[in-house]
Design a protein around this nucleic acid. Structure first.
Lengths: 112, 112
DNA sequence: CTTTTATGGTTTATATATAGGTCAATTATA
DNA sequence: TATAATTGACCTATATATAAACCATAAAAG
């Protein structure tokens, strides 16, 4: 990051990440996997896994999701094929929405 | 990453991130927010938001969750207080599990 | 149609997350 | 108890994600 930006997060985001981290840690222990084992399977360092399990906001989402998958945590309470179907549904939905969002009409700004 | 590590992700992880990205993009459009607007609110660049909406695995989880929150996507289908309660429950569950996982006893390794 | 604006690509400099160590403390097992 | 393993906390070098600046395209509005 150029310019040394200090990131701010909403309480909700912080808690969501924290919960996710806790669920990962719990799942790992329930499956009796050591930090080293999970780190190896995920292809990451043990130190990074520790940060993930502490809810560090700056870890790559791909790595976090991969670890979650490894410890058997289902992200969307859905199996593989269900996920694929949801992706397709989302794409369909997306194709029906306007390509770009216009802001010209002064008001209309849904304030809530 | 020192040492130029090539990351590998499971199909499930990739699809989970992809779905999440699609949901974010859909939610943003449904709320009629431009990429610039959301980027500003999240305190990130427009380019980063684009990568997030494309399902880039290397974006920080904190930023991704923050963007999701901004566009009104509930991570765990739960509001703020519910999230807090879940965190507490997870902590309680965690405190009941053994502090460290032992691997000595040859077998017992739950192969699946 | 024309004008305006959102979006999707780049490219580049720089702040920083990561891998890979080490070490000490803690914990489980024998 | 003693022993071995897990864990947590550091540190450093470096690969890379990021912000910012572009440009081109496309799409909405007038």
């Amino acid at each position: 990051m150029p310019k040394s930006i200090t990131r701010t997060y909403s309480r909700y985001s912080r808690e969501a990440v924290a919960l996710f981290a806790g669920l990962i840690r719990t799942a790992r222990k329930e499956r009796k996997l050591t930090t080293q084992e999970v780190a190896d399977r995920a292809g990451i360092s043990r130190g990074l896994l520790q940060r993930i399990e502490k809810g560090d906001m700056k870890c790559e989402i791909g790595v976090v999701f991969e670890v979650a998958t490894i410890v058997g945590l289902k992200l969307f309470d859905a199996d593989d094929s269900t996920l694929t179907r949801h992706i397709r549904q989302t794409e369909d939905k997306l194709s029906l929405l306007p390509k770009s969002v216009r802001k010209t009409t002064k008001a209309v700004d849904d304030e809530f």
